[in-house]
Structure formats: C-alpha cells, structure tokens
Computed example of a mutant assay.
Amino acid sequence: MAKQPQSNDSSAEASSPTSLDASPARALGEFIRAHRERLTPQAVGLPPGPRRRTPGLRREEVAQLCGVSPTWYTWIEQGRPVSASAEALARIAVALQLSRAERAYLFELAAQRDPAEPDQAAADAPAALIETVQLIDAPAYVLDRQWTALAWNAPAADLFVGWLDDARGGHPRDRNLLRFTFTSPAARTLIVDWETRARRLAAEFRADSIRHLNDAPTRTLIDALSAESEAFAHFWASQDVGEREGGTREFDHPRHGRVVYDQITLKPAHREDLKLVVLVRRG
C-alpha cells in the first residue's frame, strides 16, 4: 500500500528552486508552493497561531480555504501527476490571492482554461482597440476566437476584396476569415499560393482553438466548414498543428496587381481571445 504523503512542509523542499527542465506538474507545484509561502495567516483572515516552522500558510490551511483535501493539495505541490480541474485551480488562485497575470500563468502551467476568461459568445472588442485599428495606416483588423473580423480599417477593406470590403446589394457579408478563405472564389484569386496558405491557416486555427474547441461557436464553425469545403475537411483531418506566424503574405489584387506584405499578429492585454493583425507593405 502506498504511503500517504506527510502534510508537514519540509524546509529542504521549500528551498529547492525550480529547475529549467522541471516537468509541468512539478513547475505547477513549485509555483503554488511559492505563492503559499508569501501569504500570512492574517492576510486570509486566520489567527497567527503558534510559532511556525515554515514561512506563510500551511498546506492544510490552503486546502481548507480551497475546499479540497489536504492530501490532494499536498500531492499538487509535490508535483505528482494528479488531476486538477479548472474549478479547483480557480479556488486555489482565489485562496492564494493571485494577481491577474499570476492566475493566467497558473492556468497555463496546468494546461487548463480559466473559467473566468471572457465569455466566448461576446462579440465585442474594446473601444480603444477599435480606435487603434482606425489610427493605423497599414491594413489592420481584429479577429475574435473564431477568427471573425470585429473591426478593420479602410486599407484592410481595400486589400481584402470579398472579405472586408463593402458587400454589394445591401446584404451583410460573412466576415469570418476561415469562411472567406475556404468558401469564397475571391480568396483563391486574391491569395498567392492559396493551397499552401489555406493548409497553414487550418493548422494555425487548430492550435489556436484547442482551449475552446468544444465551445458551441467553434464547433459549429468547424462542422460547417468541413461540410462546405472539401479542402478544409481534408486539411483539418490531417491533424496538422502550427503556431500562428508572421512573415510574407502575397496577394494578386484586382486593382493593385501583385502586392507583398509582412504580417504581424498581436494579442491585446487582458483580451487574449482577440488578435490584432497588421500588414506592413514591402517596398
């Protein structure tokens, strides 16, 4: 029978630094332990009690604040490969009084999605971000989680014929980048080396959407594109994953001819579900 871990903190363990090759579970445990040791009982409304052998709160106290068993919490700190739900991590973040950045780092270490992230159904962008897009001289636009454009400027509308330009006949145009790329004939004419770029786009979206792949809007988009576009269905089934990269983007524009840009993608602070994309003209 496996020996249960002791809930007492050892000074040797508390002083061990995180190694660069630490496993994700160990890195998570050491991060949590470090922040536990920074908190005093008074900071969380607990009596100071007798003299303490270790700095900060005891593991049992944090476990009590989180509503979890001391054994489970001890195993998390020790870097054991135990399951930690997003809800349990959220309670730990609150108990340890983590800042916004620290909380985000906690969830990244645990490879979990923070339940307090902005609602995926929200289709708005901060007003300052929209104003920023309009101040940029180069083509610029903002994408949401499903890569639908929420805002764009005049140079972007001029460049992306069939996607961000004004729709004809008074009908609103679908502003989703994936739908445009895979279902619009204009995209195959506009985008140089369409097949390579389309394959890359599908791989980038797979990587970008992994944390909300089962959200209804994302799932609906993937299912619809798989049904409407044989190319998307093929690229998506390949399971290719790629990090969203910048670099060269070439277009055969109906008015401007062959144009070449360098693409830069930025994530606004506190709204990492959005992307600001800027294309800088070469030459």
Results as ranks from 00 to 15, higher is better:
residue 114 D to M: 02
residue 62 V to S: 02
residue 38 R to T: 11
residue 17 P to H: 13
residue 246 G to W: 00
residue 86 A to G: 08
residue 247 G to I: 11
residue 85 S to Y: 11
residue 26 R to N: 03
residue 84 A to W: 00
residue 212 H to K: 07
residue 239 Q to A: 15
residue 58 R to C: 10
residue 101 A to E: 15
residue 184 S to W: 04
residue 250 E to L: 10
residue 157 A to R: 14
residue 174 D to L: 03
residue 61 E to C: 08
residue 255 R to S: 12
residue 198 A to L: 02
residue 92 I to Y: 10
residue 241 V to A: 13
residue 187 A to I: 01
residue 76 I to K: 00
residue 66 C to Y: 06
residue 222 I to L: 11
residue 228 E to Y: 05
residue 224 A to C: 12
residue 66 C to S: 04
residue 232 F to A: 01
residue 239 Q to S: 15
residue 84 A to E: 01
residue 161 V to N: 05
residue 253 H to G: 11
residue 66 C to G: 01
residue 45 G to W: 10
residue 98 L to I: 11
residue 265 T to M: 05
residue 60 E to G: 05
residue 254 P to M: 08
residue 188 R to K: 14
residue 142 V to E: 00
residue 172 P to Q: 11
residue 45 G to T: 08
residue 162 G to C: 10
residue 136 I to K: 02
residue 242 G to A: 15
residue 77 E to L: 03
residue 10 S to C: 08
residue 179 R to K: 07
residue 36 R to G: 05
residue 263 Q to D: 04
residue 227 A to I: 13
residue 189 T to R: 13
residue 38 R to Q: 14
residue 182 F to L: 04
residue 16 S to N: 12
residue 245 E to A: 15
residue 247 G to P: 03
residue 103 R to W: 06
residue 34 A to L: 05
residue 266 L to A: 13
residue 252 D to W: 12
residue 113 R to L: 10
residue 269 A to N: 11
residue 61 E to W: 04
residue 247 G to H: 14
residue 246 G to V: 07
residue 255 R to T: 15
residue 168 R to N: 08
residue 183 T to V: 03
residue 274 L to Y: 03
residue 251 F to E: 01
residue 198 A to D: 02
residue 111 A to K: 06
residue 22 A to N: 10
residue 80 R to W: 09
residue 171 H to T: 15
residue 217 P to E: 02
residue 105 Y to W: 11
residue 267 K to A: 15
residue 202 A to D: 01
residue 132 T to Y: 10
residue 175 R to G: 07
residue 90 A to Y: 06
residue 245 E to G: 14
residue 192 V to N: 04
residue 165 D to W: 13
residue 33 R to E: 04
residue 142 V to S: 07
residue 36 R to Q: 03
